[in-house]
């Protein structure tokens, strides 16, 4: 359960960016979370709402985009995106290089938690 501390870190980064750009209000935040990350999306959203309270980011529309798992084959070096959906056990159990069928692969994407961008109001709104 590290959703809340992650949420606080995200809002801190958003606040810094808003300050750097002289933004008066942040209206949107887009976050990307890898499909292998242990972060629970609902808990993170809840944490973000609380962390954003009384800040420039209060009320911002938060969008979470899942980031696909990407693998690199250790035999033939092919990189591929894993399109299989469903239970993680099934997905991880069938990670195989689509080119040479090797199971000797490395996961190169899917564990991230990235603040991709924010939408911010700059200037006097009145």
């Amino acid at each position: 359960m590290h959703e809340f501390s992650t949420a606080v870190s995200i809002i801190e980064a958003v606040k810094r960016a808003a300050k750097d750009y002289g933004a008066t209000r942040v209206t949107g935040i887009t976050i990307q979370i890898g499909k292998l990350s242990m972060l629970n999306h609902d808990q993170l959203l809840f944490g973000l709402e609380i962390a954003a309270k009384d800040s420039v980011a209060e009320g911002a529309k938060i969008t979470i985009e899942p980031l696909s798992i990407k693998i690199r084959c250790n035999q033939c070096a092919t990189e591929s995106v894993v399109s299989q959906e469903g239970a993680l056990y099934e997905v991880l159990s069938s990670l195989t290089c689509p080119k040479c069928n090797a199971r000797d692969i490395n996961v190169i994407q899917g564990r991230e938690c990235v603040v991709k961008d924010i939408q911010a109001v700059i200037g006097d709104e009145s």
Binding site: V114, K116, E125
Partner: peptide, 16 residues
């Protein structure tokens, strides 16, 4: 900006 505008700011900050 004339008075106010909404802009996209790219962060790409990876917390992991």
């Amino acid at each position: 900006p004339p008075s106010s505008e909404t802009v996209d700011i790219t962060l790409e900050e990876n917390f992991m």
